[in-house]
């Protein structure tokens, strides 16, 4: 059975209908990205999935005993609240120090336990949030624009970490993002959301769908070009006997001339 399955979900907040008639499923081990412009209901949708918001109509069914690792968009910790990284990771369930250390290691920020949360850099903070989600030993990781506030290199590194984590844990990943070029290449499926599901399918399918182009086509040529570039790389990787995602990733970002070349190609499509 699916990890989470949503049928005919609608959410009204006050007078506004934020989401209407959304159908959605995610399977074990799948990477799904939700894209959509600001105010398209992406965060509202995630909040319904984690149970923070009760939909006006429709049904959400979760697999029995589903463990969710949730990485919020932003976590504002009041400066009056003293909190070490180690203590934060032991919320709401107490964790063994060895488990905490292992999770921090997995998230790429080892030995941060004694540091105050307030003293972390943006990148470290997001990775600590990721480590906390991993401690739930999740069936599904849910990330809500987790790289907001990181620069491009920082968010690329963060998503790379997510891919490594997914390979280790075998969990499904559901993320919401604006950063189409980084995210879409790694996704099994993309859902384009704008109050309703505009279109969904493989990254290639969605990127060429007229509904998607109507939303993102004009203003984000750069992002689309970058995406196509990534997409080409992943095809090359498929040809290899031992596809290394990490290689294709770093390559994609360092190879500037190829980028320009692909951009030209993209305009011909």
């Amino acid at each position: 059975m699916s990890l989470i399955s949503v049928t005919n979900l609608s959410v009204r907040l006050g007078a506004a209908t934020v989401l209407s008639a959304v159908d959605f499923t995610i399977e074990r081990g799948e990477i799904v990205t939700i894209v959509g412009p600001n105010g398209s209901g992406k965060s509202t949708f995630l909040r319904c999935l984690i149970g923070a918001l009760v939909p006006s109509t429709g049904q959400i069914s979760r697999a029995p005993g589903l463990r969710i690792g949730y990485v919020p968009q932003k976590l504002a910790i009041d400066p009056t609240l003293p909190l070490t990284v180690g203590r934060f990771l032991s919320l709401p369930r107490r964790r063994k120090p060895s488990d905490v250390a292992a999770a921090l290691d997995q998230a790429g920020v080892p030995h941060l336990e004694p540091r105050q949360m307030a003293d972390l850099s943006g990148g470290q903070f997001q990775r600590v949030l990721l480590a906390r989600a991993l401690l739930e030993n999740p069936d599904i990781l849910i990330l809500d624009e987790a790289t907001q506030g990181l620069d491009q290199a920082g968010s690329a590194a963060f998503y790379h970490q997510i891919e490594m984590v997914r390979r280790t844990y075998g969990c499904a990943v559901l993320m919401v993002s604006h950063e189409l070029h980084v995210v879409m290449a790694a996704s099994d499926r993309v859902v384009c959301l704008n109050g309703h599901v505009c279109c969904q399918g493989t990254p290639e399918l969605v990127a060429s769908a007229p509904e998607y182009r109507a939303l993102f086509g004009t203003g984000t040529k750069g992002a689309l070009a970058l995406y196509r570039h990534e997409h080409n790389h992943s095809h090359e990787a498929e040809g290899c006997t031992d596809p290394s995602h990490s290689h294709s990733h770093s390559h994609a970002h360092s190879n500037a001339p190829a980028h320009i070349h692909r951009q030209d190609e993209g305009q011909n499509v």
């Binding site: 149970g51 923070a52 919020p72 709401p92």
Partner: peptide, 21 residues
Amino acid sequence: WQALLTTTLNPDLACASGLDP
């Protein structure tokens, strides 16, 4: 205590962990 602290940090985080803020 643990639930209160988690809810204080972020209600959505608490929800995702199965708590009711």
